[in-house]
């Protein structure tokens, strides 16, 4: 079990990395009036068959040959459903996968959103060959991080460069704080 929603996001996004996606879109949407926190992770990776999709949500089905699947998706699903929310995963071979977890914001069982800055920063700086589009919105306010823009400005994807890496960390931290105090 993870202790933060942001850790689930980091873990599930690693599946997209392994699926050889070239673009991973992550969105965190807070809707206070609707009492919902919605997390979407979408990739253009290799996708899964219908059979595989059924298997990834069942933690006990995993065998050694499908070990790369494991507990990540079941943890994510459980974290949303235990708040009274919902979970879905849609995938198509050769097209990609979309995972969505909806949390009831005010539920006592909703774990903290946690450190989204660290989650997105480590995804971006550790997988510089992949593009990320991250949007964080709360009740009408929002910001986006698009590594395609960074790539264009820099003329390269050197996000691990110390100065660039520090910029990405500050960019995330400051913009998170301006939109909502729910994420670190």
């Amino acid at each position: 079990m993870m202790t933060e929603i942001s850790l689930n996001i980091l873990d599930v996004a690693q599946n997209s990395v392994r699926a050889e996606a070239s673009l991973i879109e992550i969105s965190v949407m807070i809707d206070t009036a609707g009492d919902r926190l919605t997390v979407t992770i979408k990739d253009n990776g290799c996708g899964m068959s219908e059979e595989q999709v059924k298997n990834v949500i069942d933690p006990f089905f995993t065998t050694r040959t499908t070990r790369k699947i494991g507990l990540g998706i079941p943890f994510f699903k459980q974290s949303a459903e235990m708040t009274g929310g919902s979970f879905s995963i849609k995938s198509e071979l050769g097209v990609g996968t979309v995972t969505e977890a909806v949390y009831v914001l005010s539920s006592i069982d909703r774990m903290p959103l946690g450190n989204m800055t660290q989650t997105i920063h480590s995804l971006v700086t550790m997988n510089t060959h992949i593009d990320f589009l991250y949007t964080y919105s709360a009740d009408g306010k929002e910001f986006a991080l698009d590594t395609r823009e960074f790539r264009e400005i820099l003329g390269s994807g050197d996000f691990a460069n110390p100065e660039v890496s520090a910029f990405i960390m500050d960019f995330l931290r400051e913009n998170h704080a301006e939109v909502s105090d729910l994420a670190e």
């Binding site: 993870m2 980091l10 943890f75 890496s165």
Partner: peptide, 23 residues
């Protein structure tokens, strides 16, 4: 190690700490 097991056990702040220290 950043699989489910690593992340659940607290690997993310460790990874960040190494990156920061190296920088």
């Amino acid at each position: 190690g950043m699989a489910t097991c690593g992340i659940a056990a607290g690997a993310r702040p460790v990874l960040t700490a190494f990156s920061n220290a190296v920088q």
